[in-house]
Deep mutational scan, measured.
Amino acid sequence: IDAAQIVDEALEQGITLFVVNNRLQYETSRDSIPTELLNKWKQHKQELIDFLNQLD
């Protein structure tokens, strides 16, 4: 699994991931984030931050 897949998966569930001051953040209108997704974010945090920083 790679960062792009995780970002896409989040988007499919209505969650936008982004980076502020090198910290992973998210925006969503959902009430809660699925635990499975949160765990993936934690496991791949640095990859996600690097990936999202490249997009900007």
Score class of each variant (00 low, 15 high):
47 E>C: 08
43 Q>A: 13
29 S>W: 10
24 L>W: 02
22 N>D: 08
33 I>K: 01
24 L>R: 00
32 S>G: 07
19 V>S: 04
25 Q>R: 13
17 L>V: 02
42 K>I: 14
12 E>A: 12
32 S>V: 11
8 D>T: 14
10 A>S: 05
39 N>D: 12
13 Q>P: 00
28 T>K: 03
48 L>W: 01
50 D>A: 13
32 S>E: 11
50 D>F: 10
16 T>P: 02
21 N>D: 13
29 S>A: 11
26 Y>S: 03
24 L>D: 00
40 K>M: 10
32 S>Q: 11
20 V>L: 10
54 Q>T: 12
47 E>D: 08
35 T>Q: 14
17 L>A: 01
51 F>G: 01
3 A>F: 09
4 A>W: 10
5 Q>M: 11
21 N>A: 07
10 A>I: 02
4 A>P: 05
28 T>R: 03
18 F>H: 09
47 E>P: 06
13 Q>N: 13
25 Q>W: 15
55 L>I: 13
7 V>P: 01
30 R>Q: 06
31 D>K: 09
31 D>G: 10
50 D>R: 12
6 I>A: 03
8 D>F: 15
7 V>S: 01
20 V>E: 12
55 L>H: 11
54 Q>I: 09
27 E>D: 09
4 A>Y: 06
10 A>Q: 00
25 Q>G: 10
4 A>C: 08
29 S>Q: 11
48 L>N: 00
11 L>N: 08
1 I>R: 07
49 I>M: 06
39 N>P: 02
52 L>I: 07
15 I>L: 02
3 A>L: 12
19 V>W: 03
54 Q>M: 12
45 K>C: 14
50 D>N: 12
40 K>Q: 07
6 I>C: 05
49 I>G: 01
51 F>Y: 15
48 L>E: 00
29 S>H: 09
17 L>Y: 01
4 A>G: 09
41 W>F: 15
13 Q>K: 09
9 E>S: 04
51 F>C: 02
54 Q>D: 09
43 Q>L: 13
27 E>G: 07
3 A>Y: 09
51 F>W: 09
5 Q>I: 08
28 T>A: 06
48 L>F: 02
14 G>T: 02
3 A>H: 03
56 D>C: 11
33 I>L: 06
55 L>P: 08
22 N>C: 12
54 Q>G: 13
34 P>A: 05
3 A>Q: 03
4 A>E: 07
43 Q>V: 11
35 T>R: 11
45 K>G: 09
20 V>R: 12
56 D>W: 10
34 P>V: 03
20 V>I: 11
44 H>M: 07
30 R>E: 05
37 L>T: 04
23 R>Y: 10
8 D>H: 15
20 V>Q: 11
38 L>F: 08
2 D>S: 13
42 K>T: 11
18 F>S: 10
30 R>H: 07
39 N>M: 14
55 L>K: 14
35 T>S: 10
11 L>H: 08
47 E>A: 14
46 Q>R: 10
9 E>V: 03
31 D>Y: 05
40 K>D: 03
37 L>K: 04
49 I>D: 01
34 P>F: 02
47 E>N: 06
25 Q>C: 15
53 N>S: 12
42 K>M: 14
35 T>M: 13
36 E>V: 09
49 I>K: 03
32 S>L: 08
18 F>A: 06
44 H>K: 05
23 R>D: 15
10 A>H: 01
6 I>F: 05
38 L>I: 11
38 L>V: 08
